[in-house]
Amino acid sequence: MSEKILTMKLLKERYGVCRLDKTELIPEWAKNSDFFSITRTSDELSIVCSQDNIPDDIKYEKDWRILEIQGPLDFSLIGILASISKILAQNGISIFAISTYDTDYILVKNKDIDNAIESLIKERYEVIG
């Protein structure tokens, strides 16, 4: 049997991807989960956090699950996100990706998570959690 390529961990919570105005301050509710990501650009303030923390008046996409690539990953590694996104795209699964200094996170809609995990396991990825 072939050796696994990488190990990914499925985080337990469901997450939302929020869009706020570029001028807004970073809200406290965004920081109240084990995982959150905040990105400000010249066009928007984008926040990923536990969907249970997002107020009703915020524009967001809900029901995302997160697969964390177990790191840390070396900056010299090439094609990790491309490989994973290709596998998922071939199975009709769209993603939202977040990269940090140590690793990458792949967000997949909850309705697609079982199919995503199956697809990755078939391609020698290990998924835990």
Rank of each mutant, 00 (worst) to 15 (best):
K9Y: 09
G16M: 05
A89P: 01
D34E: 14
Y60K: 13
P55R: 04
I5K: 15
N115H: 06
A82V: 13
S94P: 00
I106W: 08
K12G: 15
N32A: 09
I98D: 01
R65Q: 13
I113E: 06
A30D: 09
L73M: 14
Y15K: 04
Q51M: 13
I87S: 11
T23E: 10
V108D: 12
Y105H: 14
I113K: 05
K4P: 05
I5C: 01
S99N: 03
R65D: 03
S42T: 06
I38Q: 08
A82S: 15
D74T: 02
M8D: 03
D74F: 04
S46G: 07
S37H: 11
S76K: 09
K111E: 15
K22P: 03
Y60H: 15
S2H: 04
F75E: 07
F96S: 04
D52S: 12
D112S: 15
S76C: 01
G129L: 09
Y60L: 01
K9E: 15
D34L: 14
D104H: 06
I66P: 10
P72D: 12
L81D: 01
I113H: 10
A89R: 14
I78M: 10
Y60Q: 00
S42G: 08
R65W: 01
N91E: 15
I69T: 09
D21N: 14
E28N: 11
I54Q: 14
V108H: 06
R19Q: 11
R19Y: 08
Y60C: 00
D63Y: 08
S76I: 02
V108F: 06
L73K: 03
A82F: 06
E28T: 02
W29P: 00
P27V: 06
L81Q: 04
F96M: 11
L67M: 11
K122N: 13
Q90W: 02
I66H: 07
T39P: 03
E123R: 11
N91S: 14
N53L: 10
N32S: 05
L10H: 08
I38F: 07
